[in-house]
Amino acid sequence: MEDHHIEGKDSWIKRGWWLILLIIASFLAPTVLSEFYLSVLCEALVMSLMALSFNFLFGYMGQLSFGQAAFYGLGGYTVAMLLTKAHFNFWLSIVAAVLVAALVGLVVGIFCVRLRGIYFAILTLAFGQLIFTIVFKWHNFTGGDDGIQGVFPPELLKSPIAYYYFILLVFLVSAFILWKIIHSPFGHTVVAMRENSERTEFLGIHIAKYQLIAFVIAAAFCGLAGAIWVPFYRSVAPSYLTWIKSGEPVMAAILGGPPIFLGPILGMFVMTFFHAWVLGFTVYWPVVMGALILAIIFFLPGGILGFAQEKVRQRKERNHQLQKK
C-alpha cells in the first residue's frame, strides 16, 4: 500500500493539493485543448479507468489478467446494441452494460480464481479470446468484423465537450470508489492475499471467494469503461476485445508502477498521448511502443512512479543519515 505512515487530518490539504489542482485543470481542459487532443484526453480517461480496474487485480491482488479487454468490449457492445437495436434509454444502457460485464466476469471468474500466476494470465487470456471469437463470428447478432456503427449519445451529451465532462465525472467517481475499496477492509484483505495467501487463509479468509469478488468488481469497471467510450466514438468493433487491447492496461500499469494507485493512470496517459503524438509522423506505432516497453522494463524498474518513489525514499534516507551525523 502506498501510504505506510499513519495520517494526520490537517496534512490532507498539504498532501493533496496537487490532486486538487489536477482535477481543476481537467475541468478547464476543454477551454484550451483542440478538439483532437480533447478526444485523446477522453480516450486516456476511459482507458485509465480500464487500467485502474485491471490494476486492482494486478497491483493489489497480485493476479495478472490478460483478458480485461473482453469485459471492456462487452460493455461497449451491450451499449451499442441496446442503443441501436432496442433504442433503449442511454443511462439504463450504461447500467445494463456494467451488469453484463459483471455477470460474465462472475462466470469467467469462477473458473479463473482457482489459478495463480502465469496460469491465471493464460486462462484469462483464453477466456478473453473465446469471448472475442464469439463476438467476431456471430455475425447476425454483433455485426461480425464490421462492428456496430451509429451509436449516438443523448442530445444532452452530443457535443464533444459535454461528453468529455460526462467521461470525466464517471472517471472521477469510479476512481474514487476504487480508491475507497482498496483502502477498505476488503482491499486490505486483497493485499494480504497477495502478500501471503496461505497465512491469510489461516486467518479465516476464503481466498477464492475474495478473488472472485475482486474479479467481478474489476470486470464491472472495465465494462463501464467500454460502455462510456462507445457512444463517444459512435461505433464499436471486435478489435475492442482482442488481447492487444488487453495488453494495454498491463503495459500502463507496469509503465506507471503497479503498487501505486495513480501508477496505471499516469502510465495510460503517457501511452495514449505518446500514441497520438507518434501517429503524427509514423504509422509504425507498435514498434515504438515495443521499444518504449523494453526501455521502461530495463531502465525504470518499478515503473515511473515506483522509480520516483524509490529515489525520493533514498534521498530521505540520506538526509536522515546526514542529520544523525
Partner: peptide, 11 residues
C-alpha cells in the same frame, strides 16, 4: 468479520 466492508477505511 468485517472483510466484506467496501467503503470505510480499514485503518
Amino acid at each position: 468479520k468485517v472483510t466484506l466492508t467496501f467503503f470505510s477505511p480499514a485503518k
